[in-house]
Structure formats: C-alpha cells, structure tokens
C-alpha cells in the first residue's frame, strides 16, 4: 500500500533546495530524528561516563522508589533502573535495527526474486502467505523455544515475521518497474538478470524500503519487550528494556517504576521511530497521503 516507489525517481531528481525546504517543514522527520539522536547520545554517554554499573547489586537498597540517587528507582536486586535503562538503550535499539535490517535483506531478496523471475513467483509468494498466516508472536516464541534465547535467535525470530510484508512490497514495486522503459531497454540490450535487478530495480525500491524498515524496527522493539515479558526473550543478564520490565512484572503494585520508566522510554523510542517513518514517507513522496503501514 505504500506507493512511494514510483515517485522516488522524482524525489531524487528534484533540486536539492526544494528537498531541503521540504525537510525543514517536515516536523515528523525532524522530531523523530531528534529524539533518536538523543537516545544515541544517552547510549554513548552511558558507556562513556558509566554513571552507574547496570549490573551492580546492592541488595540493601532493593525496591527503592525514584530519588536523587536513583533517578528511576531500583529493582528487587537493588540495581539502578536508570543505569539499566541507559545501558539497555543499546541492546534494545540494536535488536530493533538488526531485526529490521535482516527482515529487509531477506524480504528484498525474496521480493526481487519473485518479482523478476516469474517462474518461482508463485512458490515464493505462497510461502510468504504461509508465514504471514502464522501470528508473529507464535513464530518468535516457537523459534526461541527451539533454538534457545540468544541475541541472534531473538533477532532472527522477530525478523522472520516481517519478511513477507517486505517481500510483497518489493515484488509489487518490481512488477511495476518491469514495465518501465529503462528496464525494458536493459532487457533488450541483453544485460544479465542480476545486473538488471541490482542496477535498475534495487535503487528504485530503497526509499520505500527505508520507510517500511523504520516501521519494522519499531515493531521489533515492541515485540522484543513482549517476548521478554512472556519469559522467552533475551538472556536476563542483558539489560534490554523488555528484560527490565519483565523483572518488575509481578511487582507492578509495589514498585511500578520498574515497569513504567522503561515502558515510557520504550514508548518514546518507538514513537520517535514511527514519526521518523512518517517523515521519511512525506519526504520521499510529498504528494500522496497514505497512512497505512
């Protein structure tokens, strides 16, 4: 449903000045990017300054409410929630980014193949339909329970779910691009398939991939938190936002800060990425207003 692909060539073709002007007026993009940069700064600072060790346990200070000493309070093992959330930024963002990247790469490969090589189109798209038919969370939980919980498996498990969506998008873009004169010309000139796909088609879909990729990243971060909440996420010694919340799960009425702070931070990050996605879409494709992901 995202139809930015056709306009991408226009976007690249317009004068840089107009593009910049549009960027200035693109509140979503700027705000989203600003919040994300803020998160990156926090992440770097947390590692550089090391305000507090996210793993340090002071069991005598367990379940302390937020104070000047512990901005976000402490958990049941007396660990500083602020330090954990700050350090968790890297893990959580990394999971989101990695899942999105992986999903995009695999999805693009399948999408290109299905769109370009019509002989395997049917097979690939039925497989994609099959994956899509299984709820994402089921794929993820089942994968993790089979392969064990590590960063690799969690990222993979989350990415699998998004592959069909990306493949569909890429395939439909490729199908419409096949009819374009420059692709037809390349075919007639006898360029090899891989060169047509890589040189002429891939650049045409990058913009829409970037937009969809941000949404995928946002979803991946939410899914990671949900998996940790259900007890099948990343290993507990990695302080992701999801893991921190999982620690406080049964303590919600006793120590709500364990869930609320990471929850709020997660919501902000996801919101920022979603805004970034909306902004990217507006930036690449100012004429249409599509709101579906």
């Amino acid at each position: 449903m995202i139809t930015v692909a056709q306009n991408e060539n226009n976007a690249a073709g317009v004068a840089p000045k107009a593009w910049l002007r549009r960027l200035r007026n693109n509140g979503n993009l700027l705000l989203g990017a600003a919040v994300l940069i803020l998160f990156l700064i926090v992440m770097v600072l947390a590692h550089l300054l090391g305000a507090a060790d996210p793993q340090a346990m002071t069991t005598s200070e367990r379940l302390h409410p937020p104070s000047l000493q512990h901005w976000f309070g402490t958990d049941r093992l007396g660990r500083d929630i602020y330090a954990r959330v700050a350090f968790g930024t890297s893990a959580s963002l990394a999971v989101g980014a990695a899942a999105a990247a992986l999903g995009c790469i695999i999805g693009t490969i399948f999408g290109l193949a299905a769109g370009y090589f019509r002989s395997i189109d049917m097979l690939i798209m039925r497989v994609m339909d099959g994956i899509m038919a299984i709820p994402g969370i089921m794929i993820a939980i089942a994968t993790i329970s089979v392969a064990g919980a590590s960063i690799t498996t969690v990222v993979l498990a989350i990415a699998v779910h998004d592959v069909p969506r990306i493949a569909r998008l890429v395939r439909s873009s490729v199908l419409s691009m096949r009819e374009e004169p420059y692709v037809e010309a390349a075919v007639m000139l006898g360029s090899p398939s891989w060169s047509i796909v890589l040189r002429h088609m891939l650049p045409g879909i990058l913009a829409s991939l970037a937009v969809l990729g941000t949404y995928v990243a946002a979803n991946a971060m939410l899914l990671e938190a949900t998996l940790s909440f259900l007890g099948c996420g990343l290993p507990p010694d990695i302080p992701t936002w999801g893991n921190i919340m999982a620690d406080g799960r049964i303590l919600f009425r006793i120590a709500p800060w364990i869930i609320l702070f990471p929850g709020a931070v997660l919501a902000f990050a996801v919101l920022a990425i979603n805004l970034l996605g909306d902004g990217l879409r507006d930036q690449f494709d100012p004429t249409t207003e599509k709101t579906m992901r």
Binding site: Q55, M57, T59, L77, G148, L234, P236, D237
Partner: peptide, 19 residues
C-alpha cells in the same frame, strides 16, 4: 542472577544461559 554476579566477582568468565 545473584550467583552470576558472585561468580564474576570471584573471577569466573560466566556464560549465562537462560531457559
């Protein structure tokens, strides 16, 4: 989780396997 911390304090290189 406390055990992991103690082991690391003593000087073990711990690989925490969650399940």
């Amino acid at each position: 989780e406390v055990l992991t911390r103690v082991l690391r304090e003593v000087g073990f290189n711990v690989k925490d396997e969650a399940m």
